[in-house]
Nucleic acid binder design. Sequence first.
DNA 1: TATGTTTGCACAAACGATTGTGCTAAAACG
DNA 2: CGTTTTAGCACAATCGTTTGTGCAAACATA
Lengths: 343, 343
Amino acid sequence: MRNSITINDISRETSVSNTTVSRVLNGFSRKYRISDETAQHVMEVAKKLNYRPNRTAVSLRKKVSNLIGLVVPDLSNSFFTNVANIITNELKKNGYSVILTDCGDDENTEIEVVNLLNDRRIDGLLVMPCGKQSEHLEDLYGQGVPVICVDRYFESSPLSFVATNNYSGAYEITKYLIGSHHKHIACIQGLEHVMPNLQRVKGYMDAMKDAGLEEEICVVGNDFSQENGYLETKRLLQRSQRPTAIFGLSNTIILGSLKALEEEGLSVPQDMSLVTFDNAEYLNFLNPPLTSIAQPNAEIAQMSIKMLLGMIRNKELLAAQRPEQILLNPTVIHRKSVKILKD
Amino acid sequence: MRNSITINDISRETSVSNTTVSRVLNGFSRKYRISDETAQHVMEVAKKLNYRPNRTAVSLRKKVSNLIGLVVPDLSNSFFTNVANIITNELKKNGYSVILTDCGDDENTEIEVVNLLNDRRIDGLLVMPCGKQSEHLEDLYGQGVPVICVDRYFESSPLSFVATNNYSGAYEITKYLIGSHHKHIACIQGLEHVMPNLQRVKGYMDAMKDAGLEEEICVVGNDFSQENGYLETKRLLQRSQRPTAIFGLSNTIILGSLKALEEEGLSVPQDMSLVTFDNAEYLNFLNPPLTSIAQPNAEIAQMSIKMLLGMIRNKELLAAQRPEQILLNPTVIHRKSVKILKD
DNA sequence: TATGTTTGCACAAACGATTGTGCTAAAACG
DNA sequence: CGTTTTAGCACAATCGTTTGTGCAAACATA
């Protein structure tokens, strides 16, 4: 068992009380009128013994853990890892460590891990909720724990959120496809009930409707996996009326589509146009480079943290405030996966 | 401030001591002869009040945190995130939470975060060390904290490790290039002093030597970034004697190469053959699909955890045992980025 | 000299659990 | 009925900190 140096060892060695040691080491010498001499001595001994405070004890006593929970749906999706990465690094700069957990896009797992995080007395929670329920999160929030929804959120909930304006992104890129004279545009969606998916589908559908293509609306699929992209693409290709363009609602989905198309010997964009949500460096080097909707990952991460830290600092306001609801605009990155059809 | 239900609330409500409550809730009713009646009552009240133990208090008292530290060099590299992902999920199944930190491939940051993790009394550390020094890790290990090096490791150190057999992977793929009649093969390396890089370079060099191509050995570059891949490729292209093949030592590096080649209007593999370490789904869909050396990510993760958990369970043996040193074999995945030259 | 003020620090209670030990009352035994 | 055993639980210390308060000695003031 690890037997580290404690404040009491210093206390013994310096023959002052642990109270005094604690105060010196926390920079309260002045405040509690510890003589410079004593303070010096304590600090020297602390350094000599290579003392480091036990954060567990501090957490227990101060009721502050400097731990932030981060719950993501699926770490094999590069969008989530990218955001998680930025969040983790940003929070470290602010003196927080993060406990990162992947809930496998499963609601019960999410509830379980949120409880676990609460047991560890996290100072705040950043969550990309994967289910329809928000009670477990609102409960936590009600207990006074700052909670921010990131990327995914709930319509009417006291929880603040930061997300991409998924609607506008989807609307815009669909309009672009239509502008390129595509009419048969299929949309492969992810988890049906989560907000980003809902909004993206809505954006797609509205753009179709606004162009008088209501009849052509075609939404298939049911999760954000690559398999889903693969299978749905295969099925789309078997239709009598094949789409001329596919809009994948995540980078994972589109990778599945690509695989299916390749297997069928179809090439992009000659035989099929392809666009996707999410951005990634490698999209530039695909065959062909894929036109995509880049989410503002860094801004999402930074804004979430800003809001979270704000709540942590102003706990009193926590309950009083109305939720902040922030939607950040995505940008369409035009590459080479859309064929311009003759009209 | 969060005011949760404690064991004392239950104690009050049931009119038994907190000792008894604790024993009941930990399943020690039998052992301490708590009557079934009392036990029942305690459990009911605990459920009614929705009691959950404060893990911070438990950690302090039991000197066990159920926290594992995971330190990776760079979370924007998909190899690391992939391994981290598997590790995190596997550990969760074993009742551990992981604190994940990215040290930005900086040695001082690594030392700092390792100290921070120690302050939190992690039960074990999985680390992909980014520097030449191992003292901070050996210190921790010496304090009785299980430490396993993952992917990266040190030559002569008491620390156990799990990594890919980088040498054989590099040797094999270089031999393959040579077998395809390439002679001018350049190697763009990552961080010079880390073991995987060292071993990969060695594999490359030995393969060249064994084929009598000692004169042609060409190792450039100095870190695992995409920028490094980009810049070094640009420079290679300016040489009077251009290489006919480039061996990138990571997926990030090769993405940089690809960018440089594209800018120069060169296509793969017609104008330049390309191979890389690391595997990723998207490599299949690049233009062209890249031949690569797939590391056994899942096995690395699982083996690391197995060793770590073993150490945690057998702490006594910790110091006594000789380090375990595990190298797992990679596999070359042949795709379409190597041109077979006429000899 | 008596009183008030400041200096410099220590005592002891918390935080929320776990755990070695001790104690009382009832049951069992002879 | 007296003694031993067992059942059933509580006391209090402990983990390593932080923190409200108290208190003696030194000093200043009148």
